[in-house]
Design a protein around this nucleic acid. Structure first.
Lengths: 398, 398
DNA sequence: AGTAATATGTTGCATTAAGATACAATTATG
DNA sequence: CATAATTGTATCTTAATGCAACATATTACT
């Protein structure tokens, strides 16, 4: 309704096309100029010009044919020389300020993780300014000057309500309120680079979408289940932020129960809830979630019953959510998601029973690689920005 | 993530800019060439060229100064000549095939309604083909040949699950299944124009967004309450369709109650439910919804109690929904929405009590002008398409 | 009233980027 | 070994925007 009101000019066309080329290369990995021309529906000569410029800028290079002679080209004609992004050309940093730790991730132009650092951190003990200083110190310490010059953006993720301009309204878990993280980070950074802030669950969704292109079509709900339960929504690859960056934050949805006795999702399917139920039925102290999983796997009745409750509550919630956003797929992540494969059929059954038969169910997927948490997603945000018309590559034009 | 991969060419630039100009004019009503240049961030000369082409195409004209001399220009300098869309240049038809009636709406290039026809129609009695034939007959009958030549699109709205290609999976209320409405309509139409199909609640949302530009920012949930309860979601002015076009279809969400005894939203806040509760407590037969409203207004205890129930269930549902999509605002429409102003405070209170205090509540709005139902929205869909790069104006280019 | 200031619309020219075409280079096919 | 197919590049054409200058129309100021 309101986007394409700003027009293009010859210069902007080239910019857009360079971006499109970078994105295509990012997605496909390696492409020839001719491939690129086909993808972008451009003439081969134009594609050549664009690549020439990007090569001059040091962002793209021809791949040196490692494999000496690659037979079986299958196709007649002169083979194209493959192009690829120059990973080292630029650098992006993602920072997750959590309640218990700070994680920093570095990714390169290709979106590959090149560095990870984690450190315990007592979030509620620090105010926002100290936390940011600490986090930026951690992320940039030991980074060679050369890398710092290649830094093109810093993304930050925190468990918080964010207004659209990057101000934290409220971060209950950290005890922060009304702070402009973007500003704080800009003041703390030794270089002037774009800074973006996002809710942790949303950052996670962006990161997951980055690793799985198939998640960028239609509507995808990401659910992260640890002690808390959060989530994010991707619509056609774009994050659905909502008015306060809280879209997808489903941990506090009410599950069953009449007024007064309501329980929220997090209180039923969260890690601490499962553990306390499990510890109540096993006499052993200090049993871990893995012990619980093992018991479920062995069909120990008490454990199975807890798992069944989990599946029921989660299924109910997911069905409700699908009534609202009609998701194509739901990705379950976080350590608690490891329970899913054991009760997949039950969860599906409960989802079915919470809808009319005619309502189509989404596909359920398990996310296995959430190793870097939302720090990776935070880095992806600035990577994404670099490959967009807002990129800082284009400073100094009308 | 995946849009700007297709590049622009000189020809396409002009097309985009023409579209942008048309949209700007549609939004603003009247603009000078200089205004347009500012809005589009273009040079005045470019803006002049673009307008020249659009004028030659008969889509834009200079407004003849009706007001003889408009003093108090307030600003020095030569006054610009105002431009406006030529409303009669093109025509769009929107058709709503409902369970009880068919409604047809014609809108012009300016988005103004120029014609409405409604007819009772027994949906379940007809198969899709007959219904479409009937609806198209109704909409085009009596239309002068000249108008038919100016027709640039037909939008159709039905209560149904739609796949992304325009096939109806299931329309329970109409008893249809697996029919491609787009194809049927194309076969029935005497002219070859774009045909678009959409779920009725979604079409309604699009139409509402068209009449209220402020609804196109952030996230807006539209709720339509008649006998059934449906809804649609607009995100930054774009419709959130979901996997099956069912996003926002909240009528079947469960409200409270344990498994087995669940009630869905429609069964509590829908018109028929209110009426039957009301008739149960008044001895009179055939009391109408307006009678009920009057009793609530007069604070008749029984009526107030029913209204309170309504507010509680709706408040609960809306709070749950906001947990998922974090809406900026919620627009209540349909005849039942007339109850809202009488219990606005109660509804807000119930929404508050169904969330933590820290969760920011959306603004609640009452939609008063849903006169044309979703037929208007269906027409808007094709209007929107005409003012987009997919427009048929650009047939015959690479 | 008369002049300066300001803004609009138009015109001619420069810039820029993409398209078209042709051609050399390189590979598979028969 | 000739032919077909495909790629990358060079040259020229086309088209759209930007720029600067100018005539025009209106307000503001002296």
């Amino acid at each position: 309704m309101n986007d394409p009101i700003v027009a293009s000019s010859p210069k902007k066309i080239r910019q857009n096309n360079e971006i499109a080329a970078l994105r295509a290369l990012h997605r496909a990995g390696r492409l020839s100029r001719a491939d690129l021309a086909r993808i972008m529906k451009l003439n081969r000569s134009s594609s050549g010009h664009i690549i020439a410029e990007l090569t001059a800028d040091g962002l793209v290079r021809e791949v040196e044919e490692e494999e000496p002679v690659r037979k079986s080209h299958a196709r007649a004609g002169r083979p194209g020389v493959l192009l690829e992004l120059v990973p080292q050309a630029v650098l992006f940093v993602g920072i997750e300020i959590g309640v218990e730790h700070i994680t920093c991730v570095e990714i390169d132009l290709a979106g590959t993780v090149v560095n990870v650092k984690t450190e315990p951190f007592d979030g509620p003990q620090h105010n926002a300014e100290k936390a940011i200083r600490h986090a930026i110190d951690l992320s940039l310490s030991g980074m060679p000057k050369d890398s710092l010059r290649r830094l093109e953006g810093v993304g930050i993720s925190t468990p918080s309500q964010l207004s659209r301009d990057g101000t934290i309204h409220l971060a209950p878990l950290l005890g922060w309120k009304n702070v402009n993280l973007v500003e704080l980070a800009r003041n703390e950074l030794p270089v002037k680079v774009p800074v973006m802030v996002e809710n942790d669950a949303n950052a996670f969704a962006i990161g997951a979408g980055y690793s799985g292109p198939e998640l960028n079509e239609g509507v995808t709900l990401f659910v992260v289940m640890e002690s808390g339960v959060g989530g994010g929504i991707l619509v056609e690859g774009r994050l659905l932020r909502g008015a306060h960056g809280l879209a997808g934050e489903i941990g506090h949805m009410y599950i069953g129960g009449e007024a007064g006795s309501e329980q929220n999702l997090e209180q039923i399917v969260g890690l601490s809830s499962i553990l306390s139920s499990y510890r109540a039925v096993t006499d052993r102290r200090g049993t871990s979630f893995d012990d619980f999983l093992a018991d479920v796997r062995d069909r120990a009745p008490d454990a199975v019953s807890i798992a069944e409750n989990w599946a029921k509550a989660l299924g109910y919630a997911l069905a409700q959510i699908c009534r609202v956003i009609d998701a194509d797929r739901i990705v379950l992540g976080g350590s608690v998601a490891k329970l899913y494969p054991l009760v997949a059929a039950r969860l599906t059954a409960h989802m079915k029973s919470a809808q009319e038969p005619s309502f189509p169910l989404p596909t359920l997927l398990l996310n296995r690689e959430a190793i870097y948490g939302s720090a990776f997603g935070a880095a992806c945000m600035v990577h994404q920005r670099y490959l967009s018309p807002e990129s800082n590559r284009f400073v100094g034009d009308a």
